[in-house]
Amino acid sequence: MLEIFICEDDEEQRKRLTKYVTDYIMIENLDMKVVISTAHSNDIIEYLQQNNTTGLYFLDVDIQEEKSGIALGAEIRQYDTQGAIVFVTTHSELTYLTFTYKVEAMDYIIKDNFTDIQKRVIECINTANQRYVQNKQSSRKIFQTKSGDKVISIEYNDILFFETSPQLHKVILHAKNRQVEFYGKLKTLLELDSRFYRCHNSYVVNKDNISEIDFVTREIQMVNGQICYASSRFLKGLKDIVQK
């Protein structure tokens, strides 16, 4: 069951928000429940400390407490890494990138008069529900690693190759639409999946995304046209792969 938490310090708005959520759950008969609807962030944190759960959180950004809604979101993340966080905010305090990259927020709702809040609440519930169900029976494999506090997650299918950076222990991941650096070792990456192959001292290639190999120049062309390099020592193993 997906548990829903609401934190909003304006009583009027909190009641309205809670009503939207409970009404929708009832009409659609969803496997969800509003567990906490509160004005105090501590109620949520205390609950999370005692229960291990995956939740959907509606948080007011500007709660009248020492910590902001964003800080609350970051704290929630420590207990519930999978949960969906939705920020309720006025237009002037809309900080989209901060929502996304500090707490991996799923969405935000602008509570200026002219947006239809109810509609947006329903959209958020639906997305969270979909995600929750998908996570349970996920088929696509996702590569996940951490750089500092930032979580990097990329589908294995999109990974082209890894390359070591001139900086010690830094690895550059080349994916189809992304290039990202993190601290790690090629050796540990190699053990993650059988489709990874060490083709060079400083390269690990995803065999599934190779388009062509030139054995003379020792260049591997990836499906998007990018070039990855192989060394003669590892070239023989590549030949076997291609022949298969």
Binding site: Y101, S147, G148, K150, I152, S165, P166, Q167, K170, N177, R178, Q179, V180, E181, F182, Y183
Partner: peptide, 26 residues
Amino acid sequence: IVSQCKGVALDTERKEKTFIQILEVL
């Protein structure tokens, strides 16, 4: 520049019509 600096990582991503670059300084 990034490759010469310690504790700095670059993340470049394209998602449909947006382009996102993240410079992480540890």
